[in-house]
Design a protein around this nucleic acid. Sequence first.
DNA 1: TCAATATTTCAATAATAAATGAACTCTATA
DNA 2: TATAGAGTTCATTTATTATTGAAATATTGA
Lengths: 117, 117
Amino acid sequence: MAHGCGRQNSDDIVARKLTALAHPVRLAAIRQLAAAGPTGLAAGRLAERLDVAPNALTFHLQKLAAAGLVESHREGQFVYYRAVFDALLALTDHLVGACCSEAEESCGPRCPTSRDR
Amino acid sequence: MAHGCGRQNSDDIVARKLTALAHPVRLAAIRQLAAAGPTGLAAGRLAERLDVAPNALTFHLQKLAAAGLVESHREGQFVYYRAVFDALLALTDHLVGACCSEAEESCGPRCPTSRDR
DNA sequence: TCAATATTTCAATAATAAATGAACTCTATA
DNA sequence: TATAGAGTTCATTTATTATTGAAATATTGA
């Protein structure tokens, strides 16, 4: 198998993740959560930062959670959300994981699998 | 700047890329093109492999091209499409590039920027 | 228990994206 | 120049997704 990828994933799961990410609010939300680190952010705090209505944010966070890109847990009044880093990192690998598998002779320095990463 | 990412990108561009990728046919198309390597594939050949109508494929390839994820060039009768690897690789970096920038003390082994990649 | 804060649910509308079939353009070749 | 193959464009219908405001649930502290 010409597939150097560590993190595995099915097409369906990846499509779902991408659909979940493919929205400005959700993209911004993920980045805020990634920046916040493992502790995450309370929903209300995130809503303020993104300047979206609380109920709208819930809508988007649910999509991200359904795709496995964020997790939440309640702490008293607050519901904290945090990014699931592994799930995010799995995306690119899936996309380019099979790079040049049908044309290995032409897999040069511009190809992902020959990068030093 | 607590941002260790090499490939740069704006939120808008990334959102557009993700929207473009967030469809089963387009996801499958990108992977076929990635596997085909730098030469790419003729549109008709790709349509056969994906089992979609030629006009439907054009619709999807245009979205991918508009997002900068694929390029095309005509060779006689054929129009070849190929994946733009750099654009694909830029995605994950953008998503997690600012990981823990607000909580560096908690950026442990499960965080992207502390990985050996 | 009452009031205040935090978050979610629900229903209705608005907006966007995708699928489909017919027609059109471009290239190659007889 | 007529024909066939390769892709694209266009217009229509259909399906999906997002936005909005009002109401409901859960937690905390007076």
